[in-house]
């Protein structure tokens, strides 16, 4: 056979294998985590573990609800802060900013993504935690150490800015000039054009951008565990400390494994984290398909 055709086939097969491998990887990880988590699941039913509040490993009580709630609080706050900030920034950069501003700002925003998360954590400890302790909590008439789900949410929101800004900027830029001109030519202001045409047309992409940011937020560990306070209790307000799942795993894995079932409980926590992220991805896919249909 011709050497060229042989190469063609070979390269094709190699790439196919790589694609299958990365596709299957998540499945393998899920199965491995499940096998490791089986000892604890053999002792206690899954739902009891998920909805129990009591986390006392020494007594053999492993309730995950505080950690799940901690994760939801931190991620929720981060997303609530990040969405308006980053979408409006992206709109400004794509529709309003001069070429000069645009070309200087874009690399700066992307640079934010490259800062190590431990640096964000330290910045949170040095700036955000005291800010909440000394100013925000007293303003609401309560006390907080500053180590809280709010601090973690703020730090996390800044970490997801670059992702959401970058992707939604691309999406806004992909809305054709002709369409914007059509709206402007009717006498619409720039803002009306953005609101009724650009955002509408870009909505599926913007949702995708938010989901990517969200996935990052769910899994972010280092910066969050440095400022969240890490108290295994459901936070009752944004100023309370929380203990998100990734922080639980990172803080304890490898340290307290002499306690029976602890190792298995942490594996279950990882599995739950994986499932939560997967769940949000699937939901967002469904939303995306719906939105794509309605904005055609």
């Amino acid at each position: 056979m011709n050497n060229r055709i042989l190469k063609e086939k070979f390269v094709g097969k190699i790439m196919l294998i790589l694609v299958i491998f990365s596709g299957v990887l998540i499945l393998i990880m899920g199965i491995a985590l499940y096998i490791k988590a089986r000892p604890i699941l053999a002792v206690k039913p899954f739902w009891e573990l998920m909805f129990s509040l009591s986390w006392h490993p020494l007594r053999g009580e492993f309730g995950f609800l505080p950690f799940i709630m901690g994760t939801l609080w931190v991620t929720g706050i981060a997303v609530i802060i990040a969405i308006p900030f980053s979408i409006l920034s992206a709109i400004y950069l794509s529709e309003y900013a001069s070429k000069f501003v645009r070309e200087w700002t874009k690399p700066l925003v992307d640079l934010l993504a490259g800062i190590p998360s431990v640096v964000y954590g330290i910045w949170g400890v040095l700036v955000i935690v005291p800010l909440i302790k000394n100013h925000i909590a007293p303003f609401f008439g309560t006390f907080s150490t500053g180590y809280s789900v709010l601090s973690a949410g703020i730090v996390l929101s800044i970490m997801v800015f670059p992702i959401i800004i970058h992707i939604s900027l691309e999406v806004f830029n992909s809305v054709s000039n002709g369409m914007k001109e059509a709206s402007l030519a009717l006498g619409a202001t720039k803002w009306q054009t953005v609101k009724y045409v650009v955002i509408r047309k870009a909505m599926p992409g913007v949702i995708a951008a938010i989901v990517l940011g969200l996935s990052r937020a769910f899994g972010e560990t280092m910066a969050v565990l440095m400022v969240a306070g890490n108290v295994a209790k459901i936070p009752s307000s944004a100023l309370d400390p929380g203990y998100p799942l990734p922080a639980l795993i990172a803080n304890n894995y490898g340290e307290m494994l002499s306690i029976p079932l602890y190792d298995s409980a942490l594996m279950l926590a990882s599995l739950v984290l994986l499932l939560v992220v997967l769940f949000f991805n699937i939901i967002s896919r469904i939303v995306l398909i719906r939105v794509e249909k309605s904005t055609q």
């Binding site: 369409m179 001109e181 059509a182 030519a185």
Partner: peptide, 11 residues
């Protein structure tokens, strides 16, 4: 009123 080279219906 403007008619462009390609029609651009709004979404």
């Amino acid at each position: 009123g403007l008619l462009s080279q390609k029609p651009y219906p709004l979404p």
